[in-house]
Simulated scan of single mutants.
Amino acid sequence: MSRRKTVSHPLCARLYVKQSQAAETRGLADQRRRMLAGLAGEVVEIGAGNGLNFARYPQAVTLVHAFEPDPYLRERAARAADAAAVPVKLGDAAAEDLPLEDASVDSAVTSLVLCSVSEPRRAIAELHRVLRPGGELRFNEHVVSKRPVGRALQRTADATIWPTLSGGCHLARDTRTALEDGGFGIELVERFVFRVSALDPPKTHILGVARRL
């Protein structure tokens, strides 16, 4: 039986589209380029948003299985898919329940999405399931601060109003540990501070490569 989730954040989705355009000029475009460089074969991308990754996939990618559950973002992702240089098959699915066969894709991509999925460990388990043994996971995610004061503030925000204001985003998730606990070996990681816009709090990001063990 399907565990299909309904996901819709109309106001946050519209704000995200506006912020993402500004973020590209602030350095996010280069982060996307580095994250996707060298990919080949079939790829799954969860939480594809408005499809800004699509134009940056290398020609060696034969198909992108992209999933975006929010209808507003998915409609914009469809436009980006039509203009992409590689084939993109766009679907309506949550990260926790991917409509793909076991071990069916070569690589996976998560880009600013594991902060906002409702069950991150289940989403990671799904990525592990659909990836072929040894397959790569490329990621760019913001994560919990290493500073005690910053971490405490993030946890307070997560327990109060931040997820409501930001479409389910959580500031204090330890995504690297969650990936390792979920059966991925981190092979390369870059840690840096980035903010999407002047209104966005600066957040620690990790960008890198993990492999399905």
Score class of each variant (00 low, 15 high):
residue 5 K to Y: 11
residue 10 P to G: 05
residue 12 C to Q: 03
residue 19 Q to T: 11
residue 20 S to Y: 00
residue 27 G to M: 06
residue 27 G to C: 03
residue 29 A to R: 10
residue 30 D to R: 13
residue 33 R to I: 15
residue 33 R to C: 01
residue 37 A to E: 15
residue 40 A to D: 12
residue 40 A to S: 15
residue 44 V to N: 08
residue 47 G to M: 04
residue 47 G to E: 06
residue 48 A to R: 04
residue 49 G to Y: 05
residue 55 A to W: 07
residue 57 Y to C: 03
residue 58 P to Y: 13
residue 59 Q to D: 13
residue 63 L to P: 07
residue 63 L to Y: 08
residue 67 F to L: 12
residue 70 D to T: 08
residue 73 L to D: 06
residue 83 A to L: 08
residue 86 V to Y: 11
residue 88 V to S: 05
residue 88 V to A: 13
residue 90 L to P: 00
residue 93 A to S: 10
residue 99 P to K: 03
residue 103 A to R: 14
residue 103 A to Y: 04
residue 104 S to L: 00
residue 107 S to C: 06
residue 108 A to P: 00
residue 112 L to D: 10
residue 123 A to D: 11
residue 126 E to Q: 12
residue 130 V to F: 00
residue 132 R to L: 09
residue 133 P to W: 09
residue 138 R to W: 13
residue 140 N to T: 14
residue 146 K to A: 12
residue 148 P to M: 10
residue 152 A to M: 08
residue 152 A to R: 15
residue 153 L to C: 11
residue 156 T to N: 13
residue 158 D to E: 04
residue 159 A to K: 09
residue 163 P to S: 12
residue 163 P to Y: 10
residue 165 L to I: 03
residue 170 H to F: 14
residue 170 H to D: 02
residue 170 H to Q: 03
residue 175 T to P: 01
residue 176 R to W: 02
residue 179 L to H: 02
residue 181 D to V: 03
residue 182 G to D: 01
residue 188 L to S: 14
residue 192 F to Q: 07
residue 194 F to I: 06
residue 196 V to T: 09
residue 199 L to D: 07
residue 200 D to A: 12
residue 202 P to D: 13
residue 203 K to F: 02
residue 206 I to E: 08
